[in-house]
Design a binder for these strands. Sequence first.
DNA 1: TTTGTTTGTTAAAACGTTTTAATTACCTTT
DNA 2: AAAGGTAATTAAAACGTTTTAACAAACAAA
Lengths: 347, 347
Amino acid sequence: MGERTRKITIKDIAAEAGVSIALVSFVMNGKSDGKGGYRVNKETAERIRSVAERLNYQPNDAARMLRSGKTNTIGVIVSDISNKFFADIARCIEDRAYKHKYTVLFGSTDENSQKLENLIEVFRNKGIDGLIVVPCEGADPILRKLADENFPLVLLDREVPGADLSSVVLNNRRAGGQVTEVLVKQGYRKIEMISYSMNLSNIREREEGYRACMTENGLGEYVRIHHLRHDRMDRITEILRDARERQVEAFVFATNTLALQGVTAIFRQGWQIPRDFSMVCFDTNEAFDLYKTAAACVSQPIERFGAEALDLLLKSIEHRDQPMACTRVVLSPEIVEYNKFDSYHKN
Amino acid sequence: MGERTRKITIKDIAAEAGVSIALVSFVMNGKSDGKGGYRVNKETAERIRSVAERLNYQPNDAARMLRSGKTNTIGVIVSDISNKFFADIARCIEDRAYKHKYTVLFGSTDENSQKLENLIEVFRNKGIDGLIVVPCEGADPILRKLADENFPLVLLDREVPGADLSSVVLNNRRAGGQVTEVLVKQGYRKIEMISYSMNLSNIREREEGYRACMTENGLGEYVRIHHLRHDRMDRITEILRDARERQVEAFVFATNTLALQGVTAIFRQGWQIPRDFSMVCFDTNEAFDLYKTAAACVSQPIERFGAEALDLLLKSIEHRDQPMACTRVVLSPEIVEYNKFDSYHKN
DNA sequence: TTTGTTTGTTAAAACGTTTTAATTACCTTT
DNA sequence: AAAGGTAATTAAAACGTTTTAACAAACAAA
C-alpha cells in the first residue's frame, strides 16, 4: 500500500508507440484530422490512441495550461452560493459545463465589491478562461476593466447599466408588474412594496414594474416602496407595524429573502396571511409552496439562466480574438398563482 | 481599448530589482526567513518585495503547480450542491479555505458512484491537493483506492464502514433517538419511520437510533421502517395511506427531502399536521421553521461540519508523507422542539 | 535528371515556476 | 598566508505540455 504510482506522460506513450512526443500531442488533441492542419498517418494515430488508452493516460492540466494558456476552467461568482436560487443556477451551469469538458470555480461576494475584486484576482491566477458574474453594487469599474481587456464575461441576473456587456436577465419589469397584478385582480388596492436599498438593476426594474402596474390600475396614490438595507433587516418589523396601522392590505416583496423575513416578522406579531396581509414575491421556497402563503410567486427559469449564460460565455471564449459582440438575453417570468386553486389549508 | 497587457513574471521582478529569479522565488515564498533554510539579505528581500508590490506581481499557478505539484486547490464532492444542507456546508468550506489561500472545486454525484469516479478523475487531473467527499452508495472501492495512494481524503456526513478513513459525521444514532423521543414524550406510541433504501451509514444509524428509542420506551412492537428508493419517491403516498388505515400516529423522517415529500403528500390527501399525523425530521427548512410543521427537527452544526472537515484535510495535506493518521470527528446533534413554545398558528 | 509538392514525422523551444548544486565574497581562525 | 566557515547569490535543470520550423521520403511534374 501507499505506492505513489508515477503519472503516465506523453513521453511514456511516445516511447511505447515508438514515435515522437509531438505526434502524440497532435493525436491526443484531435488535430490529426481536419482543421488542425497536421497530418498523421491513420495507422500511427490509431496505435497512439490505443497505447494511451491502455496506459490510461491523463493529460497534465498544469502543463497544458502553462504552455497554451487554456485551462478549460470557468469562474462563477454569485452573491451567495448557499442561496437556493443561485445554488440551483450554479448546479445547472456545473452540469452543462461538465459536458463541455469545463470545470467550474465558484465564489460568493456577499454583495461586497471588495470580495468580488479579490475573487476575480484569485480566479484569474488560476487561469480561468471566462467568468459568469452576478454583479453586486460597486462592481461596475471592476467589470469594465475586465471587459476592456477583452476578457470573456457574462453577467447573470443583474446588469451593469451603460456598460456593453453580455448578460442573461429576467424581464424584471414585466415580472414585477404581473405579480402585482395578481393582487390587484384579487381586489386589493392598498398594495405596497418591500425592497432593498441596494442599487441593483433587477431590483430597480421590479420596482418599476410594481409602480407601472399600480398606476395603470388607477392605484397610483397608494404606491409606496420601502427600502431596506440588507444589514438592517430587523427594521422590517417596524415597517410592517406601521403599515398595519395605515391599513395596508398587501405587499409585493422584491426578493425571496425579503419575503421570508417579512412573513416571519408578520407571524411573530401574531398576524396571519391572508387574514391580515396578503403578499406576492419573487421565487418560490418550501414554505410558500407547501402552505400557499403567497398569493403568487414569480417563477424564474433557472435552467435557462444557467444554460444561456454558459452558452454565451463559451461562445465568447471561442471568439476571444474578435472584437466581442455583446448579447443580451432577457428571459420571461412565469407567474405561479397559488390561490387560483383551492388551497388544501383552511385559513 | 482591448490591450492585453502581458502578465508580470518573476523574471520581470528579477530584472527590475537586479537579482536572479531564484532569489525572487525564495522571497515570494517566504522561505527567506526561518525554516526554509535559505538566506536572503534583509534589504534585498525588502527591495524584491517592494518591486513585486509595485508591479502587482501575481504568480502563475500553472507554472507553480507544474513544478511543485502543489495547487492550493481542494475538491469537495457532495451528493447535490443545490441541496440546502450541502450548499451551506460548501459555503463554509469555501470561506474557510479562502482564508488559507485555497480554492475549492465543487461537484455533485447525484448518489451515482460512476459520477463520483469521473469527478475524482477530472479533479485529480486539475491537480487538487486533497478531497472532501460525501460518499454515495458504491463509493467504497473508489475511495479505498484513493486512500491506498495516500491521497489526502476526508469523508463528510457519511462513513465507509471498515475503511480507515478520516471523517466528520453527526452522531446520527443519538440524533435519531433523541428526535424520536420528542414524539414519545408527547404521548405518541404508534410511531413509524420513513427512510431510504440506500445503504448509507448515516441513514442506517438514524434508523438504529429510532429503533433503540422505541424499544427502550416499550414501543418495540410498533417499530416499523419504510424504505423508499430515491427514484421512486411517489410511492410515499401509498405508504402514508396505508399508515393512516393502520392508525399510525407519527412519523420520523430520515432526511429533510423525505420529510418535504412526505408532508407534501400528506397535504395533498387533505390531511393536516398534527391533526392527522405528527412528525419529526432531520435538518430544518423554511416551511417547517415558519409553520412549525414538525414537532421537532435535528439541527446539524453546519459550520462545524465545514470547519472540521477542512481542518482535517489541510492537516492531512500537510503531512502527506507520514503514514496518515485517521481521525474521526463525531458532532453532536441539537434537537429543536417547535411545539415546546406556543405556536403562533392555531392548528 | 531536376524541381516541386505532398505526406508523415521530429527536434527543439517555450511557458513560469521551484529547487539543487555551485559559486562568490567576506569573515574567522589557525 | 593558508584553510575553513558562513552568508548571499545565482546558473541551470526540471516539471509536461503545445507548437513552430525543419526535415526526410515518396511521388509527380517538368
